[in-house]
Amino acid sequence: MTFPGSLDDRDAARAVRVSGGESVPLWHADPDLHDVDAVILPGGFSYGDYLRCGAIARFSPVMDSLVAAAKDGLPVLGICNGFQVLCEAHLLPGALIRNDHRKFVCRDQWLRVDNAATRWTSNYRAGQEILVPVKNGEGGYVADPRTLDELEATGRVVVRYVDGNPNGSYRDIAGITNEAGNVVGLMPHPEHAVEALTGPGTDGLGFFFSLLGVAAGAPA
């Protein structure tokens, strides 16, 4: 999906192709999802991050269709700004605020996969540690203590920062899922870790393999 101001949409499309899938470009102003099997909301600065990150994108023409499809089980992955859009659209709880240290962070980051049962993480082992880039200015995940307790108790924390929290996220949370496990949002960028030439490794491939593996087992 491309919004005005998206910048990692091409990388996300490439990651899908590198993983063996077919990428279909979607445009925010077109409410038709064109029968895709999954949607990736990419990183970037949709609408210039005006008002709040993701706040304007949430009201794009495509979002009504996307929210309805996600509630019907369509796999949706939100990366960085895409995670912010998913929170603003209330498909995921909580919100992302400015990094606690007030600086933009861009580095390779170790994550632990806490939930390997979602549509986007089944290719990993629970507890597996992966190295992917993180790059954000407003990546601090926050929610009220009750929401955080519920996320932890129901296994909905998907990935957690290890070896240092880059942005002040509560309880080192890097990514979460909805109750059904089809919608996942995370601040780090698995799509930037799919080729050794341009990333810290290929640990990010698992997100895309997970989706394709599930789709391959489903009836046509």
Binding site: R98, N99, V142, G168
Partner: peptide
């Protein structure tokens, strides 16, 4: 305004 329990890094910078 941000809720009182939410950290405000911009306020701290000020």
């Amino acid at each position: 305004v941000l809720k009182p329990e939410i950290l405000d890094p911009q306020g701290q910078a000020i």
